[in-house]
Amino acid sequence: MSPVILPKERLDCPDPARCPVAVRELTEAAGDGKVPATSLKADSEWFRVFNAVDGYATRNPGQCNSRFSPFDDESSGERVPSIYLAESLEATLLETSFHDVPIKTPREVNVSTLFGKAHARVRLPTDLLIADLRDASLRTLGIERSAVASSPREHYPCARRVAKHIHSSMQDVAGIVWHSRQAEINQQPAAKVLIVFADRVPTERGDWQLVPDRSSFGALLEGSGWLLVDRLADSLGVTLVDELS
């Protein structure tokens, strides 16, 4: 099998003179070991949407363009793999399959984009110390959510610089938790989103367990997955365009 060729990390700000991300404040806090942190208990439950060709605990090796990934380890230069999760399946869908739905009408999601996608409700394999960038914790640093958790997509590279410094901090955290921007802009209840630095958590077969419930795993286009997709679309005023039938 050919090795996976990962794209070069993108950390350069597209507009340094008007960058909205609090890179300096957060990287200084990381360097001083003073980024707010919280503990997540083993067996706490989180949701994930993923490509069905992978397993529900498969790490993303670094082939994404997300707020806090991908980036390379400061010491080794190796890409830091990640696992993105959210506290509800609705929030997970908003951060993945519904991420690029426009705010203005027409609001549509093509059902073909959900083909081959699955959902899972999983338990963390161990207790984790996590950098806490939720709204209240940001305020303790004098930082508004717009300066990191709600910064625009074009400034994802700036947020990734923050994540890279947090990863290399003496605090040795296993990820970052924040409040979902997609839930915010879609006027949904506040929801926690979590990126796990997958080089710091167990990821062997069986380490991550499904919650023992018949709706904990399935395809987005079938069963409980499809029911939730349909219900979420209806609540958001989104039309599901079905080209698969």
Results as ranks from 00 to 15, higher is better:
residue 3 P to L: 12
residue 5 I to P: 05
residue 6 L to I: 14
residue 8 K to D: 12
residue 8 K to M: 13
residue 9 E to G: 08
residue 9 E to M: 10
residue 14 P to S: 04
residue 16 P to C: 02
residue 23 V to T: 01
residue 29 A to Q: 01
residue 31 G to D: 09
residue 53 V to R: 14
residue 60 N to G: 11
residue 65 N to Q: 10
residue 68 F to C: 04
residue 70 P to I: 01
residue 74 E to T: 13
residue 74 E to K: 12
residue 78 E to A: 15
residue 79 R to H: 12
residue 83 I to H: 01
residue 86 A to V: 10
residue 87 E to P: 05
residue 91 A to S: 09
residue 93 L to C: 07
residue 93 L to N: 04
residue 96 T to E: 03
residue 97 S to H: 08
residue 97 S to W: 07
residue 98 F to R: 05
residue 100 D to G: 09
residue 113 T to M: 11
residue 115 F to L: 13
residue 118 A to C: 12
residue 121 R to T: 08
residue 122 V to R: 04
residue 126 T to C: 15
residue 128 L to P: 02
residue 131 A to G: 10
residue 133 L to S: 08
residue 143 I to P: 07
residue 143 I to A: 08
residue 147 A to E: 11
residue 149 A to I: 06
residue 149 A to P: 10
residue 153 R to Y: 15
residue 158 C to K: 01
residue 159 A to Y: 00
residue 163 A to I: 00
residue 163 A to N: 01
residue 165 H to N: 05
residue 169 S to W: 02
residue 172 D to I: 05
residue 183 A to V: 02
residue 201 V to G: 04
residue 208 W to H: 01
residue 208 W to V: 07
residue 210 L to T: 04
residue 227 L to W: 06
residue 228 L to Y: 04
residue 232 L to A: 05
residue 235 S to E: 11
residue 243 E to M: 13
residue 243 E to T: 15
residue 244 L to Q: 09
